[in-house]
Design a protein around this nucleic acid. Structure first.
Length: 559
RNA sequence: GUCCUCAUAGUUCAAUGGAUAGAACACCAGCCUUCUAAGCUGGAUAUGUAGGUUCGAUUCCUACUGAGGACACCA
């Protein structure tokens, strides 16, 4: 749609250049077309608008309105031939507002009906080869306990982004990185707690888990003399058990299916990838010794300073940096050209390190790291800090049990990742009945109800060859235009990752539908009109359902 | 002290540099003989402060104020 319009404007500009009306200039700048097509907020400003004349004003040293007028005239010359743009309007200071033929808009319904679940898929995606392969790593919570409220953002965002990118034509793998290396501090600490010699990570949940100590753990305690080794092994064992719970919760309760569960211990340490990376870095002169530790010369690659790679302790344990580099090198080796990581705000300081280390590896693909800002809690005026270790831990489980998954997902996905999300637990519970998710779901249920009635009245077959020109009232045309935004949105989100725009879109779409419902009766005496309107609500249902599917929110048949 | 993010209506949040800054909740006034009133229609209220860039700034830049986070041989 947007592309069609862009092409028409570009063609007009080329014609103007050829005939000497405009000087010659490139239509593409920095890899992007200079002709931008927007959807105006106000409908009196057209179906689409372009600021091209304002942009050209400087290049051509001409008044923007004059330029817009010239382009507009050329577009109108092709009006009948293309059958897309019906009219243009030039508005101060130089906007080119575009009005489409109703027929062109109406006929788009047929495409939606034809594509069904596939509606919204971007056809003929521009990305090919390695760059089309995306590894999306998210959640990756330490296997030391349950998921808390902060994890929800990461989890839902990643899940939805994966679906959007898939629709946009990428091949996406969702990966969960299991931080279970025996050499790591958190596994040792977990192990220490597990054998009853520490209190870190201890809470009701873990205590419950430890009560039913597995026989393996008992054997381990009995047979392992070396304390250090005992902690490592016990931690690893316990992490495995906790992970089983976690996995089940993620798949069953959060309804998120990861493609790959990547075990740090098994995939990186056992397969000696950490060791190999260490050697490679040393061989390539990226490492130097200082104060008994090994340092990585990462400061020269964009990080703010050099970092410790291997500690000065007796056993020379690596810091997180070494396995992380090995991990990312492995992602690259697996053929992914686009790496996306979703991290919590507490890892924000490592973004530079990670990017710098990939520079060392001469990675020529893309690494995007999304940071989810903190979730804080309040009850009334009191702020509560979320902490994994101590204090009040509110788990995702308890929230979902209380509010329901649809509501929770919708609520989380309504907010940009960059905002500091403040949850009022009381309000959330209250909102479970006032949540906009019900507004959206209600629209879907309503459509189903009408379609069901049409089926009973044997009117359903009319959808097949609808007389779409009957859809001429404002509320009908507005609804169709809203449906047509969906693929545009998928395309935009695949570039800016702003998943929450999709959630807001469902509200807007439901809004347009409810308005239409109020204005127009679907099943009536006029058979042609009934058929056309049935086609319209069928297309609305498809679009709404596809969007809700992406969000992971159910589209109920009735409410 | 340095770095990252944020500051919009009473509240929770929107707005690829665009035109009259949008929703929801709460509040007020209307609308069910008709496909689901979990709906529709109407109403009041907001861009932290001071500069700058631009035809045009909530958006970009600088300073300030305030909030959260990160600054380890933890991950």
């Amino acid at each position: 749609m947007k592309d069609d319009i862009r092409k028409i404007i570009e063609r007009a500009i080329l014609v103007a250049q050829k005939s000497g009306i405009f000087l010659s200039f490139d239509l593409i700048k920095d890899g992007k077309p200079i002709v931008e097509i927007d959807r105006p907020l106000e409908k009196i400003h057209g179906d689409y608008s372009s600021n091209i004349a304002l942009r050209l004003s400087k290049i051509l040293n001409q008044d923007a309105c004059e330029i817009a007028t010239k382009i507009g005239d050329l577009i109108l010359e092709e009006r009948e031939k293309t059958g897309i743009i019906n009219g243009v309007e030039i508005v101060h200071p130089g906007f080119l507002n575009i009005f489409l033929f109703d027929k062109y808009i109406q006929n788009k319904i047929l495409e939606i009906l034809k594509q069904k679940d596939g509606y919204g898929n971007i056809q003929g995606s521009r990305v090919r080869g390695r760059m089309s392969k995306v590894l999306l790593e998210f959640l990756s919570a330490n296997p030391t306990g349950q998921l808390h409220l902060g994890h929800g953002r990461n989890a839902f965002w990643g899940d939805v982004l994966a679906k959007v990118l898939t629709k946009a034509g990428y091949i996406v793998k969702k990966e969960y990185y299991i931080n279970n290396a025996k050499a790591s501090t958190q596994i040792k600490t977990l192990g220490q707690t597990s054998v009853g010699e520490g209190e870190a990570y201890l809470n009701d949940y873990l205590e419950e888990k430890l009560k039913v100590k597995s026989s393996k753990l008992k054997v381990l305690i009995k047979n392992t003399k070396d304390k250090e080794k005992l902690y490592c092994e016990a931690g690893f064992l316990m992490a495995g058990e906790l992970l089983r719970d976690l996995k089940k919760f993620i798949e069953k309760d959060l309804k998120i299916k990861f493609d790959i569960w990547f075990s740090e211990e098994d995939e990186l340490y056992k397969k000696k990838l950490v060791e190999k990376m260490h050697k490679w870095l040393k061989d390539n002169n990226f490492v130097y010794k200082k104060e008994g530790a090994e340092w990585l010369k990462i400061g020269g690659y964009g990080d703010s300073k050099d970092r410790v790679l291997v500690r000065s302790d007796e056993v020379h344990t690596p810091t997180y940096l070494l396995p992380d580099i090995a991990y990312h090198a492995n992602k690259i080796k697996r053929g992914f050209g686009r790496l996306i990581n979703i991290w919590g705000a507490d890892h924000q300081g490592h973004v530079k390190s990670m990017k710098a280390s990939l520079k060392m590896l001469k990675f020529n693909g893309v690494l995007d790291i999304l940071i989810t800002q903190m979730v804080s809690l309040k009850e009334g005026d009191k702020k509560i800090k979320l902490s994994k270790r101590k204090g009040k831990v509110v788990t995702m489980k308890s929230l979902i049990d209380e509010v329901g998954l649809d509501s929770v997902r919708f609520f989380y996905l309504l907010k940009s990742l960059d905002t500091h999300m403040e949850l009022d637990l009381e309000l959330m519970k209250e909102q479970s009945s006032k949540n906009p998710v019900f507004y959206v779901q209600y629209a879907h249920a309503r459509i189903q109800s009408i379609l069901k009635k049409a089926r009973i009245k044997n009117q359903e077959s009319r959808i097949r060859n609808p007389h779409l020109e009957m859809l001429s009232t404002e509320s009908e045309l507005e609804l169709i235009k809203e449906l047509l935004r969906f693929p545009e949105l998928i395309e935009e989100i695949s570039r800016d990752y702003q998943v929450h725009r999709l959630t807001h879109y469902t509200i807007g779409l439901a809004d347009k539908f409810h308005h239409f419902y109020h204005e127009c009766r679907v099943i009536g005496d006029d058979e042609l009109l009934t058929g056309a309107r049935l086609a319209l609500i069928e297309a609305t249902k498809i679009t709404l359902k596809n969007t809700l599917n992406i969000l992971g929110v159910s589209a109920p048949e009735k409410m």
